[in-house]
Amino acid sequence: MADGRLAAAVQAMPKTELHVHIEGTLEPGLALQFAARNDVELPWTSLDALSAQYEFTDLQSFLDLYYRLMGTLRHAQDFHDLMLSYLRRAAQDGVRHAEIFFDPQVHLANGIPYDTVLDGLHAGLREGEERYGVSGALILCIVRDLPLQDAERMLDLAVPRADEVLGIGLDSAEVGHPPKLFEHVFERAGDLGWHRVAHAGEEAGIDYMQQALDLLHVERIDHGAHALDDAAMMRRLAEERVPVTRCPLSNIRLHVVKDAEGLRIRDFLDAGVITTVNSDDPAYFGGYLTDNYLALVQAGCTLYDLARLGEMSIQASFLDQGRKAALLEEFEAWKLEYLG
């Protein structure tokens, strides 16, 4: 299949996105726009100057810029506009549903009330579904390198509007902040009826993944790149049907792996692990969802491999069975057109 037809096929493929941080969709131009309208001073005043900062040596160098630009989000309208911008782009990539991380602890530290964040994001979700046909839900991420008591307070604030959140996640700098620290927080989230996921195995190793599974009782592992270091972990993920949300361009840009071949996505598929492709923080890592799928072609993945990943993205979502069945039916129609 020619490159152009392959890209068109991937873009048309009905799929879900299960690992994307809404703050990570803040494009440089939009950050400058928010800074100007909210009187937020940034060290960079031109698009070229800000874009030049998007070269990272590791996770922390990325997080430094990420948190700095989050300070441009001040009002519900900003969160609405950010969400709408992402959903428009997601629709272009064939996304039918997205389960979207957000980091309210950081916004609270910036003086932005939780209600302001939630109101803006939900307004964007509603308008985005009407305009673009992409449904969405929110996963409240705990920022693991903030004090533990902040996480507990965050949950206190979230309780009155618990039904507006799909689940809890765990993100930010991984090493030195193991999942076991957040066992009580995740237990409380489970009592609220929230789904549970966690970043593990991106920077840190198998032990963090084991803690996430055994102590936090997560239903998905976000990243999970280091599962390949341990055959027992790969077997466990496969046998227990725990999906991993892989993020190709993120792993490459943050030097988790050297190149696309280092992602070893086909090894996950061959081991029977439910594996999904996601964009993580696309404004920072150089590509939205189609770009992440196409990066795998460089590692030898065929359209048939990408189709397996797309189908798994639907299966790994937290959608109800009726909506999953409808999306899988749409997916079968796509297969007939592009795979024959």
Rank of each mutant, 00 (worst) to 15 (best):
A204I: 06
A212Y: 07
H223M: 06
D229A: 15
G169I: 00
L166M: 14
Y132V: 12
G224F: 11
A36C: 07
F186N: 08
G193H: 11
Q321T: 12
M312H: 15
R264C: 13
D156W: 13
D163N: 08
L339Q: 12
E187W: 05
R96V: 03
L59N: 02
K335R: 12
L148Q: 05
L30M: 13
Y54R: 14
P160S: 05
G128K: 04
A52L: 00
R131W: 09
V257R: 01
D207A: 15
D281G: 08
N292V: 02
V175Q: 01
D191F: 15
V134D: 00
A52W: 11
C301G: 11
G272C: 01
I265K: 12
L296V: 08
D93R: 10
R88P: 12
F182K: 08
V117I: 07
H80N: 05
R266V: 01
V185T: 14
W44L: 01
D3Q: 14
T16Q: 01
A295Y: 02
L216V: 06
A35L: 05
G190V: 10
E41V: 15
G201K: 05
P160A: 02
S85I: 04
A225D: 00
V257Q: 00
Q77I: 07
D103G: 10
Q60M: 14
L249I: 14
G71I: 11
I139K: 11
R126D: 13
Q105D: 12
T72C: 00
S250L: 07
Y67V: 14
T72H: 06
L157I: 09
P178I: 03
V106A: 15
G136W: 10
C141L: 00
A12K: 10
F62L: 12
L192F: 12
A2M: 14
S317L: 06
D267A: 14
V20G: 02
W194V: 08
E337M: 15
S61V: 12
L294H: 08
L192G: 07
G300C: 13
S172I: 00
D78H: 07
L319F: 07
A98S: 06
G310W: 10
Y338Q: 03
K180W: 04
E311C: 09
L84Y: 09
T290H: 08
C301K: 03
G322K: 09
G133H: 02
G201M: 05
F268A: 04
A31Q: 11
D267W: 10
A198C: 03
S85M: 11
K15Q: 07
E164R: 13
V277K: 15
L289E: 13
A326N: 06
H255R: 10
T275K: 06
I206F: 11
G94Y: 02
H177G: 09
Y293M: 00
M70T: 12
P14Y: 02
A307D: 11
Y208L: 02
P104E: 09
R144L: 00
R236K: 09
A49L: 01
A98N: 04
A189N: 02
D291H: 13
V106T: 15
D259H: 09
F186L: 04
Q315Y: 08
Y54M: 09
R161N: 05
L30C: 04
Q77T: 09
R323H: 10
V134M: 00
L140I: 11
T302W: 06
L32P: 03
E55S: 15
P282A: 13
L319C: 07
E261S: 13
G205K: 03
Q53G: 11
H177K: 04
H223Y: 04
V277W: 15
R188N: 04
Q60F: 15
